[in-house]
Every structure is written in C-alpha cells, then in structure tokens.
C-alpha cells in the first residue's frame, strides 16, 4: 500500500507531463502527417509563441506609452488570456512565409524540406536574439493559476494542471478539425491521393497553406502554455523539437492518436524514471523509441508514408 501511495504521485505526474509532450508534438504531427513535411522550425515557432506571449503579458509591446500604460493596467488574467489567443495568431504569418518557401520542396527528396526548415529555425532563433536579447524571461501567470496546491500530501503546481487542461482542449480541437470537418476530410484525402483530390476541383495548395498555418499556431500555442513552466530563452525551441519528433516517430507518422498516446507514454516513462532512476530520465524516452520501432517500424499507429519511398 505504501509503495502504491509513493508511486501514485509519479503516475499522475507522468500523465500531466505526457499531455504537455503531446501538445508540443501536435503541430508537428499535423504538418508531418498531413503534408509529409518535416518542419524542424517547429521548435523556433514554439519559442516565438512564448516570446510574443511575454510581450503581451509583461507587457513589452511597441505601443505609445499611454496605450501601453492602459494595457498594463488590465488585470493579468485578461492579459494572459489575450496572450493565449493572440500569440499563435501573431506567429501564424511566419508559418505562411515558411510554407511559401517550402513549396519548391514538395514532392522532392524530404531532405530538401528538412534542410530548409533547419535553416529557417536558425534564422528565427537569431531573430529572437536580436529582438529580445539573450537573457531569460519568465511569463507571468495570473495568481489563480500559479502557486501550488496540496494533493496526496504533496505540493503540486497549479499551473501544471491548467497547462494539461489546455493541452486537452487543443488536442480535442485538432481531433475535431481533422476528424469531424469537411476541411479535415479534404486534407486527409489530399495527403492520401493528391491527384484525385485536385481532379475533384479542390485547391490543394490553399489547403496545405491552412494546414501549415494551423500547425504553426499549435506550435506557438504550445510555446505559450509551456513558457511559465520552462522559462523563455532563445534556444528553448531545441527543447521542444526533439521530443516532438521523437513522439511522432514513436506514435506513427500522421496519426493523431499516435501523437496523443506517444506523448502520454513518453511522459509516463520520463516521469517514472525521473523519480526512480533519475540518471535514466532523459535517456528513457530514446530507449522507449528504440523498443517501439524495433517491434513496429512505423510506430504505434503509423501507416505507410510517402517518406518511406
């Protein structure tokens, strides 16, 4: 009983961590799964979301002093809510430009897209350094969402559970868009057989733009949600893109449920190993990946992808 009581907090922690990992992977999954493009700039878009959120919340906006003063007087709760909504919208144009740049790589060796997005990631990180400098920032969180609460005789981060809830909302939204809308059906059909979809008169180019923008906004949203936990610094994107990539491969390219279950599994493994074999906590996610792809090369829910050609 004692062992179970000791284990329970780490299981709960694993689930919340897993939801956050799944949130980070969501935008990456959308672009890779539906467009079959590996977007290595995902981490930098994640970081941009966090920085824009900071600019809105702190606030550090390029506005006239009196307007900025009025905005600063708005309660933090409203500013934070505005950041959650506006930061992804502000990052969306970066996704638009990136998608435009990537068009020449469509249908070619995936390496081209990979190299392009890697370069863009470096440019965006440098841009962040130029605009915000190299110092760290902390995204202020409303009092109601910060601090700790007691559960199972331990102090837990209140915000962490808010973040997990936001992750669930985002995942539900993506699932509804992909699985329950005409747009989602067209995008999936386009990914499956682009020629037929175009023959039916659907503008696949425009669809791809929307998918890319949605993926970009999800990356930025994840950046906003994770910023109060991880802090904000120029290279924070690297911390996001690696687990995102790993989760997608683990869960299976193109699978929504693969990303969700993959995220939860990674969270659980990292959380439990952190508690009971701390020296393995970082390595554990890679060991999990090796174990899964050894047994099932396409990941847990993966289907055959054009990337395999």
């Amino acid at each position: 009983m004692g062992t179970l009581l000791n284990l329970l907090p780490h299981l709960v922690n694993g689930i919340t961590l897993g939801l956050l990992f799944a949130l980070i992977a969501l935008g990456f999954m959308l672009i890779l799964g539906l467009m079959e493009q590996i977007n290595l700039a995902h981490g930098s878009l994640f970081a941009l979301g966090a920085y824009f959120a900071y600019a809105i919340c702190a606030p550090r906006l390029p506005l006239p002093p009196d307007v900025l003063g009025m905005w600063a007087a708005v309660p933090l709760g409203w500013r934070f809510a505005a950041a959650v909504v506006l930061a992804p919208i502000l990052v969306a144009p970066f996704g638009l430009v990136l998608e435009r740049l990537m068009r020449r790589t469509y249908g070619r060796d995936p390496l081209y897209g990979l190299l392009l997005t890697f370069g863009v990631a470096m440019v965006l990180e440098e841009l962040i350094r130029m605009v915000w400098g190299t110092r760290d920032y902390i995204l202020p969180v409303p009092r109601e969402m910060s601090g700790g609460f007691i559960m199972l005789d331990l102090i837990w981060s209140t915000y962490r559970f808010w973040a997990a809830a936001l992750a669930i909302v985002a995942m539900a939204g993506v699932w509804a868009i992909v699985e329950r809308t005409r747009f989602g059906a067209m995008v999936k059909a386009g990914a499956h057989d682009s020629e037929i979809v175009q023959a039916l008169g659907i503008d696949l180019t425009r669809l791809r733009v929307w998918v890319f923008v949605l993926g970009t906004m999800l990356a930025a949203f994840a950046g906003v949600v994770l910023a109060p936990l991880w802090g904000i610094r120029p290279h924070m994107g690297v911390d996001a893109v690696v687990p995102a990539f790993l989760i997608i491969v683990l869960g299976g390219v193109g699978s929504f449920w693969g990303a969700a279950i993959g995220g939860l599994l990674v969270g659980m493994v990292v959380g439990l190993s952190g508690a009971y074999a701390s020296e393995w906590s970082m390595l554990s996610m890679y060991l999990l990946l090796i174990a899964v792809v050894t047994l099932r090369a396409r990941g847990l829910f993966g289907k055959k992808s054009v990337l395999e050609v």
Partner: peptide, 20 residues
C-alpha cells in the same frame, strides 16, 4: 542523490521525490 540529466526542463519528478 538524484542525478539530473543535462538540459532537463521539467523537474516535477524530482520535486515530488524531494517532498517524499
């Protein structure tokens, strides 16, 4: 002695353990 891998960003596991 809890070993923390470099580039760890989420310390919740360790902080729960510390409390236990």
């Amino acid at each position: 002695n809890l070993l923390i891998p470099q580039n760890t960003r989420d310390f919740t596991s360790y902080l729960l353990k510390v409390q236990q």
